[in-house]
Structure formats: C-alpha cells, structure tokens
C-alpha cells in the first residue's frame, strides 16, 4: 500500500519562469511600433469634422500634413501650420516643394496632401490652400475627417 501513497503529489504548478520573456517580447513590439508625434501643434488641436465616406490614407510616408485651426492665444482668424511653425498661405508652395525634395522622383505623383482643418475654419482659407496646391500640381488632396455621421457636424 505504501508504494501507492508515495506517489500522491498533486499537479505541479506551471512554471512562470518564461513569463518575463513573453512580456519582454510584447514590450519590444510596442517599443518598436510606437511613433512619437513628429510635429508639435502650435495651433489649437483642430476639431476634425465627421464623415461617412472616408478612406484610409495609405503609405503615410507619402502624406504631408497641413493644419488649419485657431491660434492658441485666441486671436481671431484661421491659422495655418506647416511643419513646426505657423505660416501664411504663401508658404504652402515652398512647403510642398520641401516635401517633394524629401522623396524619390518616381514617388512625387503619389504625394498626398492631407488638410487637417478645424470644424469652424472658413472655406475661404481652405480654398486659398487649394489654389496654391493646384498651382504647383499637388493634386492629390485629402480632407482629414473622423468616421461618424456627417449630420453631427452641423448640430454642434
């Protein structure tokens, strides 16, 4: 009988020794994928309008961003931010030329300009930017929007 009693051991606990390895693996994944924001906003964070017919922007490296919004100190009128500073409409061209210089020549027709404009911005400002873009043949344009019902834009 005693032979059988010796065997009574209970299930061994699962070894947690490899837990740190798993966690580290996850950690490295997130460390590598995390992208810290490249540009700091000099204007108020634009409140993007909503739309249903949105498309995802592919190839982020080919996108240049133009921010339009209110200034932080509350002066009236729309402010345009290109790269890291507040600019005026006339600087859009040189901004796009600068962006083009960063890319290979064959990529230039695929460069997209994304306008991140505040809901309360005026269409006039956007049009001015669009005319500048058209002048230098930067024709691919994207109005940055959140996904949601477009009818909510007007209510609030």
């Amino acid at each position: 009988m005693s032979k059988f009693q010796k065997k009574k051991k209970g299930t061994p606990g699962i070894s947690t020794a490899s837990l740190p390895d798993i966690v580290f693996m996850l950690l490295f994944f997130f460390m590598v994928t995390t992208v810290m924001r490249e540009t700091t906003l000099k204007i108020q964070q634009p409140k993007l309008p909503q739309a249903t017919e949105v498309k995802k922007l592919e190839k982020k490296s080919l996108v240049s961003y133009i921010y339009v919004g209110k200034s932080k100190d509350g002066t009236p009128g729309d402010k345009i931010q290109l790269n890291d500073r507040i600019s005026n409409v006339g600087d859009v061209k040189s901004f796009i030329f600068g962006e083009r210089a960063k890319h290979k020549e064959e990529d230039i027709p695929f460069l997209t300009t994304s306008i991140k404009a505040d809901m309360e911005a005026n269409v006039g400002t956007i049009t001015d930017i669009k005319i500048e873009l058209r002048d230098i043949n930067a024709l691919k344009l994207n109005y940055s929007t959140r996904k949601g019902s477009a009818l909510d834009n007007i209510k609030n």
């Binding site: 017919e53 498309k55 024709l139």
Partner: peptide, 19 residues
C-alpha cells in the same frame, strides 16, 4: 508603451484637384 501607443489611422475624404 501600450498606453502611449496611438494607432491612429488617418482617414479622410479623398479628392483630386483639377489641373
């Protein structure tokens, strides 16, 4: 890192300007 990672997908209405 989980908290700081923003997987923001940029979405928007795409238009092509006339030449």
């Amino acid at each position: 890192f989980l908290v700081t990672t923003t997987m923001d997908v940029d979405t928007g209405i795409s238009r092509k300007l006339p030449e």
